[in-house]
Design a protein around this nucleic acid. Sequence first.
DNA 1: CAGTATCCCAAAAGATACTG
DNA 2: CAGTATCTTTTGGGATACTG
Lengths: 127, 127
Amino acid sequence: MTTTKAANPNTEACPIRDVLDRLGDRWTVLVLHELEETTLRFGELKKRIDDISPRMLAQTLRRLEEDGLVSRRTFPTIPPHVEYTLTGLGHSLLVPVKGMMRWAADNQHAVRAARHAYVPLRPEAAK
Amino acid sequence: MTTTKAANPNTEACPIRDVLDRLGDRWTVLVLHELEETTLRFGELKKRIDDISPRMLAQTLRRLEEDGLVSRRTFPTIPPHVEYTLTGLGHSLLVPVKGMMRWAADNQHAVRAARHAYVPLRPEAAK
DNA sequence: CAGTATCCCAAAAGATACTG
DNA sequence: CAGTATCTTTTGGGATACTG
């Protein structure tokens, strides 16, 4: 971490939080991941992530575009043709994101084991 | 909430999401970060992350403990004394998490610039 | 085809008073 | 001190009908 420890990285003072917040939602990482290899159209994304609603897909893409992670290219045809592509920035984000996924993959068993072994501290009396 | 449906290969076969979901909330990464260097008590964490409510801090710590990322040690004194420490697993998670933070720090300007330059497609559309 | 508009619900998070 | 209980607000997200 590069933030100073003494300072409290609260909501608006911390640009890092501000950026990372976008990754917290349910769909962003999934969309990023789908676009890693190839450019895709709205409908193609919708097919690959088929439990996403059009509303959420649109919103997710809009935010990604707004943050400069995805570029949107439209062809003035009828019917419309719109392509979404990861930008360089988007690809660069994918690097640490994949690091996270790697960790999750590597440690899922440890986490599951911990969860299973966990006993709530409700009836706890002494140690 | 975990994946409610699993129609998609990416979500379905993916316990990764289940693990990663915990990081999506507002406070987990912050707490992890505060505990990197040192063991801290509840009140000390509260002080350092002072816009967190006791409720959210407790909930966050409980989840971290449940996942085996943080260990909780109580001293049977009056008043109570409780210490939170990162486990080995917690430290290992911090590695990719810091990768993410590093990315955010390195690219915050690019993201902000993109946001600022972004013009909505439909000028009248509100969020 | 690529989205919007609208309505609705569930979950997350905030505030705060209270207690062992 | 270290939390819980409770209530309220805010946000995320699902469904779906509609349109340029």
